[in-house]
Computed example of a mutant assay.
Amino acid sequence: MDKAKRRHFCFDDRQSPWRVFGRNKMFARVSTYRPAPDRTGAPSEDTVRQVLDMQGCRGIYYLFKKDNKSLSITLWDDEKALEGSREVADRIRSETSAEQHMEILEVEEFEVLTREIKA
Rank of each mutant, 00 (worst) to 15 (best):
M1F: 05
M1I: 10
D2H: 00
A4P: 06
R6F: 14
R6W: 08
R6K: 06
R7P: 01
F9H: 15
C10M: 12
C10R: 14
F11T: 12
D12Q: 05
P17S: 12
W18V: 03
W18P: 00
F21R: 12
G22L: 08
N24M: 02
K25N: 12
M26N: 05
F27V: 12
A28N: 04
R29N: 11
R29H: 01
V30I: 15
S31C: 11
S31P: 02
T32F: 03
Y33L: 13
R34S: 09
R34D: 05
R34G: 03
R34W: 05
T40G: 00
T40H: 02
G41V: 03
A42H: 09
P43I: 04
D46H: 14
V48L: 08
R49C: 04
R49H: 05
R49Y: 04
Q50C: 13
Q50H: 11
Q50W: 01
V51Y: 01
V51G: 00
L52K: 04
L52W: 02
L52G: 03
L52P: 02
D53N: 09
G56I: 10
G56E: 10
C57H: 09
C57Y: 09
G59T: 08
G59D: 03
Y62P: 01
Y62E: 07
Y62T: 10
L63A: 06
L63V: 13
F64N: 03
K65P: 02
D67A: 04
S70I: 01
L71P: 06
S72W: 00
I73Y: 02
L75Y: 14
W76F: 05
D77S: 09
D77F: 06
D77P: 03
K80V: 14
E83Q: 08
S85A: 15
S85G: 13
E87A: 08
V88M: 08
A89R: 01
A89L: 12
D90K: 00
D90N: 13
D90Q: 10
D90Y: 04
R91M: 11
R91A: 13
I92S: 00
R93W: 00
S97F: 01
A98T: 11
Q100K: 15
Q100D: 11
Q100F: 03
H101S: 15
H101N: 15
H101E: 15
I104C: 05
I104F: 00
I104V: 13
L105M: 15
L105A: 12
L105D: 07
L105S: 06
E106R: 14
E108Q: 15
E108T: 15
E109D: 15
E109N: 10
E109R: 01
E109T: 06
F110P: 09
E111K: 07
L113Q: 13
L113C: 06
R115N: 15
I117N: 11
I117A: 11
A119W: 03
